[in-house]
């Protein structure tokens, strides 16, 4: 069975002929994504490569399809509502670009389906193995890049709602420096139109306690603090390669947090970051840091380190001060 499907897919690949979706030429067959809500692939337009996603729902009721008038109207209304909601959130995401988001470029309909186009990033999602090869200076910048990008989103009341390592593409820029590109705004919403109950999407590993409450239709307010919680978990993984610890009776961080159980932040993480992560993983959104506070905390950590290094330099020898962008923060500093 396994062999059969492999040979069949290889055959399909050989047979695939590029075709147009609107003005975009699909260059490879589309693949279904994990959630089964959409299919995705790569396309070109004007010599440039793009990422394209086909939404499996809603399906537009084409004129050529025989439908009872009321059914047609209902389907049409669903499409219009879905489209307007997506349009609003995508517009806000585009407006939040601070350089490191992969924002929506085009939302359109082709025959009965809706499509989303974004720039194609050639990079791969972050994995913990790859992370271990990035030095501490660079990891710190990655944290700041994230906090900066998400502060812009929060300013525009956008909740990404699916922040996780898989949705952070790691990109090598000049030299051997790495930066982050944030993808997948499928689960995103605006603060004033947060989903409820079964409409909520997200990854349980990174789920905020209030998101779970909203899922089971308990009173909860969903805000960009949902992303702060997820980012706390991402920072933990970034700094020590593991998820925060909690009692084995729980499966996920949010469960332990909701039950007021202890969250163990790894001893391998430098003290100032442990304090920050603890603030990001607070149960009550009101007590939790905002995105802007996370960014200022990181700036504070940076300023403290600089001051300490400058003081050490004065004490040691009259050696010249390190250049900007030089090595001012290191793993050794935290030992």
């Amino acid at each position: 069975m396994g062999e059969l499907s492999i040979s069949m897919s290889a055959e399909n690949k050989d047979k695939f002929t590029p075709y147009l979706i609107g003005d975009y030429l699909l260059t490879q067959p589309m693949t279904s994504n994990k959630s089964g809500f959409s299919k995705w692939g790569f396309c070109t337009r004007g010599g440039k490569e793009y990422f394209i996603k086909e939404f499996l729902n809603p399906v537009y009721p084409l004129e050529s399809i025989k439908l009872e008038p009321d059914v047609r109207h209902r389907k049409m209304d669903q499409c219009i509502e879905w489209f307007n909601q997506k349009k609003r959130i995508y517009f806000s995401i585009a407006a939040s670009q601070a350089g490191n988001l992969v924002p929506p470029l085009e939302l359109f309909r082709n025959e009965s389906h809706f499509y989303l186009v974004t720039d194609k990033v050639s990079e791969t999602p972050m994995d913990t193995h790859e992370l271990s090869s990035i030095d501490m200076d660079n990891k710190f910048i990655l944290m700041k890049v994230l906090a900066n990008s998400f502060t812009k989103l929060a300013d525009n009341h956008v909740v990404h709602a699916d922040l996780k390592l898989d949705n952070l593409m790691i990109k090598q820029t000049n030299g051997c420096f790495f930066t982050i590109k944030v993808i997948d705004f499928d689960a995103s919403y605006l603060e004033d139109s947060a989903p409820v109950g079964e409409e909520i999407q997200g990854d349980f590993v990174y789920l905020a306690p209030e998101t779970f409450l909203a899922m089971i239709e308990e009173p909860a307010v969903l805000s960009p603090k949902v992303d702060v919680f997820a980012m706390g978990i991402v920072f933990h993984q970034l700094l020590c390669g593991e998820l925060p610890g909690f009692d084995s009776e729980y499966d996920y961080v949010y469960e332990a947090v909701l039950n007021d159980a202890e969250i163990k932040i790894s001893e391998n993480i430098p003290e100032e970051f442990r304090t920050l992560i603890a603030e990001m993983l607070r149960k009550e959104p009101a007590d939790r840091y905002s995105m802007r506070q996370v960014l200022s905390a990181l700036n504070g950590i940076e300023a403290t380190k600089r001051a300490r290094q400058a003081a050490e330099a004065v004490h040691a020898s009259p050696a010249p001060r390190a250049e900007h962008g030089g090595r001012w923060i290191s793993t050794d500093d935290f030992d």
Binding site: L20, I21, G22, D23, C79, I80, F83, K86, K87, Y90, F91, I93, A94, A95, Q97, P103, P104, L105, E106, L107, F108, R109, N110, E111, Y115
Partner: peptide, 16 residues
């Protein structure tokens, strides 16, 4: 930035 995002509900297949 905002205007970088385009959207249309018209059938792109007809308008391509």
């Amino acid at each position: 930035l905002e205007s970088n995002f385009k959207s249309s509900m018209e059938d792109a297949d007809q308008n391509s």
